[in-house]
Amino acid sequence: MKNYLKISGLALIALVGMMSCSKNDDAAMEGESYNTSFEVTDAPIDNAEVEAVFVTITNVSVDGKSLEGFNATTVNLAALVNGKTEALGNLDLQAKSYSSIVFELDFDKDVNGDAPGCYVEKANGEKDALVASSNKITINDTFEVLANATNVIVIDFDLRKTIKEEKDGLSSDFNFVTMAELTAGIRTVNAELTGKISGSANDANNTSDKIIVYAYEKGTFNADVETRGKGESEVTFANAVTSAEVKGLSGSYSLDFLEEGEYELIFASYKEDDDSEFYFNALLNVESTTGLNLGAIEVSSALQISANVTVTGTK
């Protein structure tokens, strides 16, 4: 009987010890953090008058915690296209979803103390100050931090959706769109979970002075809605995930940091008026040179898809 009690006691102690270790292991897993870096990029603004767009960022926080290693910086967002990024800082974060990044901007002065802090630089060298109703921009787009991975969170500050132009006679005044539109115009992705679509557009018939290609989630493009302009700032192609300008002699383009899923590509023609400004002309009919279905392109992480097209006319 004594031996039985002794054995039972030892078994109980072992069981308690195992449960304790299991709880400690679970707690360790839940509390483990992964170094996560943050970078900023941009989708191009389709306005020939805009030479550069500078924003002065004074703080970036995630769930209330400021990025480590971040120093106030004045960034030319217009230069960060075709996959180019600029590092902001990093944080140790647990592996889970996050949905709150706050950018703090200085509208008055840049990092050198010169005014203004945020502005459009026009082709003639003039600075046009950019302001918004608040210097704090809360980005509510969700991003995922992965366990045991290289986590690089890319913040896509889409200038086409976040800057508006107001005409007054022959002059233009640029400004940020409304706060709601500004928040909606910025997306966040974990680069580890993204791919890209790149290629060229051959416009042998010279249908356009400029061609912009837009990436939409499959089945979400509505021509009547997207070409008409949306919201108070009348942003066209507002529901596009991202966009790129077809450039150079080869007519190349690159749609970067696309999250996994199916996409459709929309090619749009722009014409240049007498004031050297571009305006939307028409949607383009295009054909893939390799038989790729341009209305259902499957993108997966770390995959680069080539989508070369020939322009056959306007719609």
Rank of each mutant, 00 (worst) to 15 (best):
V131C: 04
S134V: 03
F280R: 08
D114W: 02
N285P: 06
T178Y: 02
D106V: 11
D273E: 09
I212R: 04
F103M: 01
I57L: 15
V311K: 08
S269N: 14
S254V: 05
G83T: 03
L193N: 11
N308T: 00
S20E: 02
L294C: 05
D46Y: 11
L93N: 02
L5W: 15
Q304N: 15
S250Q: 07
M29D: 11
A115C: 09
A52V: 04
S276L: 12
F280H: 11
Q94C: 06
I153C: 01
L294F: 05
F70Q: 04
A191M: 10
V246K: 04
D106M: 08
L182C: 03
Q94T: 10
L91R: 05
K196F: 01
A43S: 11
N112T: 12
I155H: 03
E104L: 00
V246N: 03
D42L: 01
N293K: 04
A129H: 07
L67T: 08
N3T: 06
N112W: 07
F280G: 05
I57V: 14
T142S: 12
G295L: 01
A129P: 15
E277D: 07
A201V: 11
S250K: 07
E126T: 14
T73P: 08
Y263E: 04
E86S: 09
F176A: 11
A302R: 14
S172V: 06
E245R: 14
N281D: 13
